[in-house]
Nucleic acid binder design. Structure first.
Lengths: 348, 348
DNA sequence: GTGAAAGCGCTAACAT
DNA sequence: ATGTTAGCGCTTTCAC
């Protein structure tokens, strides 16, 4: 393979422009104390030679690495990939993260980490030592992993926690699940629905509670009772079936159901079909997350969109700002939207 | 943000173990000429201190970067992400690539490159200079981009070309599209179908031709005519509709259709439904690619699986071998499989 | 405003 | 089998 050396280095640029290495470095890093004409001359040499700084060398001399690390749960991600059911979360994270990184001259590196292991810290320490990222994006369940948070905080590496309120430090970002659930509920109530049920998600995830809270508040505001309208699920298809059966088996069955994720919504759709309940004529259905599959069901599902790309984009921006000492940390909420499709209609 | 220095370096390990830097380096790199007891002592120090080499420093001193770069088409990837229709290709590539990299102590870095631009080479040169990867995985359409191939070959960076026959060098890997199309065709013929149509894909992609060839050969082998049974598509949903309408509007309409990708298969499904043609009773349908959505259609689609993960995994293995001078390049075929679901039945 | 010197953490080449 | 030296490409001091 040949020990590849940098083809064109800062030295070539310096001699081409007839200046010192230092001046070139200043231009690269957009520092002050360079006369515009000097800057132009150096930039000319850079362009002419097609020079690009080596991030390895930059890192070596104590500067930033221009690398943002994005961490996802290993088991869950691999399982999703293997099952080949789509991994929309990852895609959207990459979309928001990579593009925003690129805008700022950074690069996003995507890694998988095993939360459940007792040596998370060791694993993370290895990744950090090897890559030396300027910032880390944590996704659930890592966002609330005390070991990870403590490690990063101790190393003074800026980190963003997606889907967490962020007790313990760092930049916390949540998508507005409570408001989104409220929005979906109001949307149905405004159409005349009165028995609007919710299938909740796994309570180990904060979002499940937030969605329940949003639904409950909106129902209360609309003067609607919620008794017997909350069914427990755990985000799995099977739990969705069970919940839908319970809900739809009641004498006074709901005229609308909000499912806390797409899998459970799909399960509800199938359950209703099996029971001869037409959607949307007999039952309106709103789903959470808006992953790709809900557009291909029959009918296509009205869904609450999780703004994952926007949230990760914001995380990256704040991480980069934090690197410049320009971010104080703290919590930020990214608004969600409702995507109307064909699974909602006024009640009969 | 503090100028982060490596917490524990090779120097700490050396002094902890009471040996020279070089010996530690030898242990890290698993070189010979170290006595087992020395090796053990050094390894002990490494473990005790939790030392991890900095890849930046390793790269600086002319060693490998332990980075494998995976390149995808920017516009297409971003469009897929934005459309939120799923980007199974990326997911599967990451699955095969990242896991295989990890097995060998490498890391996969995922980047987007704009093929259509006239400065592909410049863009790629920038990425290569910044990251200095030990190998590059090219996906279509980059696999057949002459500029990219020439650049990488010129720099003596090992590269793998997915979906290309690889004239021009490098490691070429194809999924066996021709055989797969033949397999699907025979599967239908064996059930008794005689008018088996194919909706072809965009001819700018090799796979389109390969799939057509496989279908044609299998039809010939089975003694079946193909006249009027080939419809042109371009992989888009819209082109699938048009093709399906053309095919199903004929007097002697086909009893089975093979679509060259999932979007066109879904379009065919919808078109058939609109025309009152029942699947699989009146029409059998086989799709290519086996992306997540085909399991959620009604009925779920029988599909040819593209072994993307396996192919990329193999690419990474060969790239790493190439780095050790152990791969001669050349073409390799990864077999595809047929996943039976509910969209195929014997003809009436 | 610009330049020169020192050093980041590691490995290649050369001793021993 | 192990140690020593030099240097990778860059940024940080610190001079001027």
């Amino acid at each position: 393979m040949g020990r590849r050396r940098q083809a064109v280095t800062i030295r070539h640029v310096a001699s081409e422009a007839g200046v010192s290495l230092q001046t070139v470095s200043r231009v690269i890093n957009n520092e002050s104390n360079v006369r515009p004409e000097m800057r132009a001359r150096v930039q000319g040499a850079i362009d002419k030679l097609g020079y690009v700084p080596s991030i390895a060398a930059q890192r070596m001399s104590g500067s930033r690495s221009y690398l943002i690390l994005a961490l996802n749960d290993r088991d869950r991600t691999i399982a999703d990939w293997r099952a080949r059911q789509g991994a929309d979360w990852i895609d959207q994270m990459l979309l928001g993260g990579m593009l925003t990184c690129a805008e700022h001259g950074y690069r996003m590196i995507f890694e998988l980490v095993d939360t459940h292991s007792d040596h998370v810290e060791r694993e993370l320490a290895g990744i950090v030592a090897a890559l030396q990222p300027d910032g880390v994006v944590l996704t659930p369940p890592h966002s609330d992993n005390a070991q990870i948070v403590a490690f990063l905080a101790g190393k003074h590496i800026p980190f963003a926690r997606i889907g967490s309120l962020g007790e313990g430090g760092g930049i916390a970002l949540t998508m507005d699940d409570e408001a989104a659930a409220g929005m979906a509920t109001r949307y149905l109530a405004d159409l005349g629905h009165r028995r609007i049920a919710l299938i909740g998600g796994n309570r180990e995830y904060h979002v499940s509670d937030w969605r329940i809270d949003g639904w409950r508040s909106a129902m209360a505001e609309a003067g609607l009772p919620t008794d017997g309208l909350l069914a427990e699920g755990d985000f799995s298809y099977a739990s969705g079936e069970a919940a839908a059966q319970a809900l739809l088996g009641r004498a006074e069955r709901p005229t609308a159901i909000i499912a806390s994720n797409d899998q459970m919504a799909l399960a509800t759709l199938e359950t209703a079909r099996a029971m001869g309940i037409a959607i949307p004529a007999d039952l309106s259905l709103i789903s959470f997350d808006n992953t790709p599959i809900v557009r291909f069901s029959q009918p296509a599902l009205t869904a609450v969109d999780q703004p994952i790309a926007a949230t990760v984009a914001r995380a990256v921006e704040r991480l980069i700002a934090a690197g410049n000492g320009e971010d104080e940390g703290g919590h930020e909420v990214i608004p969600a939207t409702l995507v109307p499709r064909d699974s909602v209609a006024p009640p009969r």
